[in-house]
Simulated scan of single mutants.
Amino acid sequence: MTDLESSGLSGTDSSLIIVDDDKAFLQRLARAMEARGFTVDTADTVAEGMRKVDQKPPAYAVVDMRLEDGNGLDVIELIRKRRPESRMVVLTGYGNIATAVTAVKLGAVDYLAKPADADEVFAALTRDPTERALPPDNPMSADRVRWEHIQRVYELCERNVSETARRLNMHRRTLQRILAKRAPR
């Protein structure tokens, strides 16, 4: 009996698309989800993901938020239009409340920070929709959350330090020192 069958979802469509530009992670997660009973298809770009969703909308999806050629939320939105009952999880290396809210509004059932393991992804995909998500075992530290937020604003400002500092209401030199350091754990 596969994990998918033991979750009470046997007999349902087990098609899953995973869209992520980290090829090593994509292959590992695909193998792990196949071992749990899913029929897995993969894509490493938004364009490829959207093409595959257009051809055959999946019952489940795991989509990275930031891909080299665009935003994974575009894939989520297309899946929601083509197959409204799909269960989708968004993965991201940049935790952000605004994007989490957008992902959920577009139909994602959960929003997981990378590196998420296969067990977390499987639990998010198969959890009873009326059940609340469990708090993470290893949540990001407050310093890491702050650093991620600064990085996100910096990227949104097209890596313009002065504009990022202005938007964050922070001195430019302070921001430069933060950006020069490694990410906190």
Rank of each mutant, 00 (worst) to 15 (best):
D128Q: 01
T102A: 15
L168D: 02
M65W: 12
R51E: 08
S141G: 10
D69M: 08
S10C: 02
N138C: 02
V40N: 04
E158K: 14
T99Q: 09
Q176T: 12
V90G: 04
L4R: 12
D13I: 05
P115E: 05
E34N: 11
L29V: 13
F25V: 10
R172G: 00
S6E: 10
A133M: 03
F122D: 05
A98Y: 04
L106M: 14
R87N: 01
A32N: 14
I18N: 00
N138K: 05
R83H: 15
T126M: 01
R83P: 05
E77A: 15
L134N: 08
K23C: 00
N96G: 05
T102G: 04
E77D: 13
V109M: 11
N71S: 14
A59H: 08
I18H: 04
A180M: 06
M33F: 06
N169P: 00
A124W: 10
Y154M: 15
R36K: 13
L106G: 04
I178R: 06
L91M: 03
A24T: 15
V89I: 14
R146L: 13
V101R: 11
V63G: 00
W147Y: 15
V121L: 02
K52L: 15
L9D: 05
Y94F: 15
P135N: 04
R172Y: 01
D21R: 12
M65V: 00
M33G: 07
A35E: 08
D74Y: 11
K114P: 01
L29D: 03
S10R: 14
V145Y: 10
T99A: 06
N160G: 07
A32E: 15
A43K: 03
V161D: 01
Q151R: 14
G37N: 05
V19I: 07
I17K: 04
V19L: 03
V153C: 04
M170V: 10
A113S: 12
R152F: 14
R83S: 14
I79R: 09
N138Y: 11
S86M: 12
G70P: 09
W147V: 06
T126W: 02
D128E: 08
V46K: 07
E77Y: 09
D44P: 01
Y60V: 06
A43I: 09
V19W: 07
R152T: 15
D119G: 10
I79F: 13
P115V: 07
K114Y: 08
A183K: 06
M65C: 03
T92G: 08
Q27N: 08
A59G: 11
P58C: 01
R146W: 07
P129L: 13
Y154D: 13
F38D: 03
A180L: 04
A123F: 00
P57M: 06
R36A: 14
V62M: 04
E148M: 13
R82N: 11
A103T: 03
R51T: 14
M33V: 05
V121S: 02
